[in-house]
Amino acid sequence: MAAAGLLMLANTYLIFMWAPTEATLGHVQRILYIHVPMAWLAFFAFFVVFVGSVMYLWKRQRRWDALASSAAELGVLFTTLVLITGPIWAKPVWGVWWTWDARLTTTLVLWLIYVGYLMLRSYGVNRSQGALYSAVLGIVGFVDVPIVYFAVDWWRTQHQRLVIGGATLEGNLHPDMRTTLFFSLASFTLLFLVLLWQRVSMKRTETELEALEGSQELMGGRSV
């Protein structure tokens, strides 16, 4: 926890003070150090959802569901941040807030799939059914991602792009920029793991508490 906090502080320093300012784009380029780790973590989170879902369907142990659903919550959070930071980055670089390119479109579709995942959980008749059904979506969604990406990518290459120009994301980075990016990736990943751990243990506590309440109800029923 503390380590993650310190790292995030150091990370902020690197991003805003230490990393050199990009020549043509200026300060707005610094959003790269947040945008890229967010995107990586979103995909990583959905991979965790996939693993948790497969394990839940196999073992039917609640902890796997807790892992999958916690990762899905974080994944949706990070995808949302990607979708917010993306346009802020795109506007000065491409001249538009949004363009239907492969990466942006896939991210948007991804966001929709996992928002559906979270909705499915809350609309289920009961908890175990919600866990079961969302595991299905956790698997279907992850398998679908590469197909979505290819489809959108081919589709894009067939239609003229609106605006192309400016720097690409991974273009030639100054060594200090590169260092900052990697540092940011590492510290955000650690932050993600800490958040995931927190969320999973919170869910475990919730389950234990409910189990306690449940058994008290039953005990009470019999003794009174």
Partner: peptide, 10 residues
């Protein structure tokens, strides 16, 4: 067997 909150069968 439990469907979430309280166990149904114990």
């Amino acid at each position: 067997k439990s469907f979430g909150v309280a166990p149904v069968l114990r």
